[in-house]
Design a binder for these strands. Structure first.
Lengths: 218, 218, 218, 218
DNA sequence: TATGAATGAGTGTTCATTCAT
DNA sequence: CATGAATGAACACTCATTCAT
């Protein structure tokens, strides 16, 4: 990254996971998770650029050096955050409406998805901030570049539903599934960047209407 | 002689405007512009968090202190960048198709807009990166928060065209102009955050199709 | 990685006490003391305004950042110096005349005091310089303002002796103890500011004579 | 001083008064005085160490570079202040009591002096601060060391009065004039360093009483 | 005379990282 | 496992001084 590593530093690959194998105790795992969580929240608050390793350690209540025991490098910490953010992020469901235990159709799944989007933007807006932060950061940091895989997973997730919808006859047969997924993702990414957070919900509504109309057109 | 520590500083005149009013020569103005430009490009390359004042000065070929003569603070520099990025950013037109000197209808204007979007993403992708960087940074820096005004201008710009289109009968009368502008903006903001830049063009195409269809529906 | 600009700092924990509570080892205490000592001597040499944190660190033989580990701020270092200078400064005794192990009367104590004054001006003239430097600096720095407490302690110390002398019948009963202490202090403070250090001793002698005469007058 | 002069700098002597001869117009003289005045007050406010050439220029309303035209060096400015502070400082009289145009005896002159001291500490306490600041600064700056001459003049001034008093029979014949002057000066210098400015007046009173008693003793 | 512009050499402070214990 | 101590390499910002105009 920006700063040259100290002269005696080993190669990137060596260093990143130097201690990892030994951290397998329940305690250690718990602490790992806590550190990742704290990092996640701090990124949401101060951004990737404003993230201070010291703050992460403080928030978890451990020493600066202890953090480095678990994550030898700041980059490795960011990497861990991006990984954990992956699939979990995209598929995190909206709270199911009570009694809706039955299997959902693809159309309903997409409705759920947009509902979930609005819900998450309300309850956990940091998630989107963090994702965007990491994306921007990934432009210049190879270590974090793995966040970009989120897009692939995301696209796969949406494509699956859309394909299902086509098969179920909810969406038109010639729907460009991959492309549609991309359009939805682009919208989702831009949404939290709107200067007027109070208009996000209605914006989702309109976009959802566009999608459903366009996906169903004869 | 002695040099006083920063904290004790805050001397006689208002720090923020110590030099600003005195820059009056054409030379000075030119240099000012050059510094803003360099900052702009460096943000595109390294992000707001990775921006180093030293790099800006070096790129323009002036001394570190010279930069501070024009912009007493890093924040003031960022602020200048955000201001310059404003209206110019949103309305920057795609190159007119040859021979198209005639007045464009609102529908054509929107077509131009999406064309321009693709064009800009190709020729000046940094612009979007910078905008997004500044937006994210604005979340924690009041100084830069003025970037948010870009959204207002952006919305006004699109709303004007849309309203015109409604009046001209190109778009349906009940089109929610303000909301539609917002949806478009959200999409535009998310677009450059797509992990696959090569798919941006086709994504614009699909979104444009959605828009035109939905805006024209009886 | 990235480094954040100082202004944006102010992270998680309270900056002022980020490290302080954690210094617990004997080693650390020793280093702390060493840093204070070095600061003390450098103030004597170059004055408060000429004090450079870098010089302090160098003199102790540690890194610039190490100093900041112990004293997060230049001010905190100055504060530490002023505190340490406190009572110790005023009451630091002249070397006892040989065989004078017996308890001293108040009159003798005052004689000792003036003797000690001359002695200290000879052996440790910096002490007075430092005190005066800090006093002057305290006029504009609240952090150091605690030095002013030295005066209170100083006055208390002298008042005690004088009161004792009155009770013992060495000094006249109507002696304005508090006021006399103040006069002595004023003299002591001005003494090291004399342009002719070689005349300090005789000046003390004369002032002492004045004091003893005036304090004993029927 | 602390900072090494730029490589091409001429010798000290050359530089200090490079332009001086040409500044002989009324305008220039006035500006000179104004700059010295501003410097004087700024030293009182922020101390020698806190003095910023930029602030001096700003306060007088001229450009940074203009100041350097009159005083090519910060040191030369300080030097000018110390010189101007010289005799004027010591002999500045208390406002004569109305109708007291008659010639004063030496005893009365000393009474006036102490009265003047109290008066000045009230009306122009900065004067003492500046003197002390400059004295302390003179310890490491040869350029300012000329302030020390103030002491000589001061001593001469007091000695003259005291000698006159001896001749007039007001003071005892064996009074050590030079030494007494020194004692008074030491007291005067320390007085403004008292942490309790409200006690200065009474402290002067007591010291004056000591002086008159001791100087008159058979 | 006066000034806008420019700069070299600091100056205090920050922070990720290392290491002995 | 955990921590207190230590550090190198920045980093934004300051200031006296110079120079062309």
């Amino acid at each position: 990254m920006e700063k040259m590593p100290p002269p005696e530093a080993a190669s990137e690959a060596d260093r990143t996971w130097r201690h990892a194998p030994s951290i397998r105790t329940a305690q250690g795992d718990e602490r790992r998770r806590a550190l990742i969580q704290a990092t996640y929240h701090l990124i949401a608050e101060k951004g990737v650029g404003g993230l201070r390793i010291h703050d992460v350690a403080t928030r978890v209540g451990v020493n600066n050096a202890t953090l480095h025991y678990y994550f030898p490098t700041k980059d490795s910490l960011l990497q861990a955050v991006s990984e954990q953010l992956g699939y979990e992020f995209i598929t995190s469901p909206a709270p199911a409406a009570p009694g809706e235990t039955a299997e959902r159709t693809a159309r309903e799944k997409m409705q759920d998805y947009f509902k979930s989007l609005a819900y998450q933007l309300h309850t956990a807006p940091e998630r989107f901030v963090v994702i965007n932060e990491l994306f921007l950061a990934a432009r210049r940091d190879e270590q974090i570049a793995r966040v970009l895989e989120v897009d692939t997973q995301w696209q796969a997730y949406l494509s699956a539903i859309l394909t299902e919808g086509v098969q179920q006859g909810h969406f038109r047969p010639d729907l460009d599934v991959a492309q549609t997924a991309l359009t939805i993702i682009a919208f989702c990414k831009g949404l939290p960047l709107l200067a007027t957070p109070d208009r996000q919900e209605s914006t989702i509504a309109q976009f959802a209407e566009w999608f459903f109309t366009m996906a169903s057109l004869a």
